[in-house]
Amino acid sequence: GLKTLHLGSCVITTNLQGIRSGFSEIRDSVQAKDEIIDIRILRKTQFLQGTKPADQCCLLHHILRLYLDRVFKNYQPPDHHIFRKVSRLANSLLTIKKDLRLCHAHMSCPCGEEAKEKYSQILSHFEELPPQAAAVKALGELDILLRWMEEV
């Protein structure tokens, strides 16, 4: 059913199953466009689970902002069908980010050194690539992000 994410003192409920269902419909098509298979943006060393609980909210908040600001915005869907599916994902992640922003407003989403360090590593992996290629790769790695959230 609905998944409750305990991110330190920030607790939110989200329909991860619905998001994963939406992603599974475009997964092969999006990942097939990612031809740089030697590079991975979301790596195990920056795992959400391996992060101190207090920092998990901030790390996830920053990753979602990256997706909303620079992945979905730069991604050019090949057709309307994919476009609608990507819109569903973008709007679904937006609802999670809005919940995290509430935690932030209630001072329950602190940004410690670990969160900053891990996010800057992710950002540097992302910025190694041209914007368009980075957007395609990051979108193709949404299943990694979803599993991070499922395992929190």
């Binding site: 599974s24 990942q31 990612d34 599993r147």
Partner: peptide, 8 residues
Amino acid sequence: TNRFSPLQ
């Protein structure tokens, strides 16, 4: 192949 995820 496509990207293969044993879990998925």
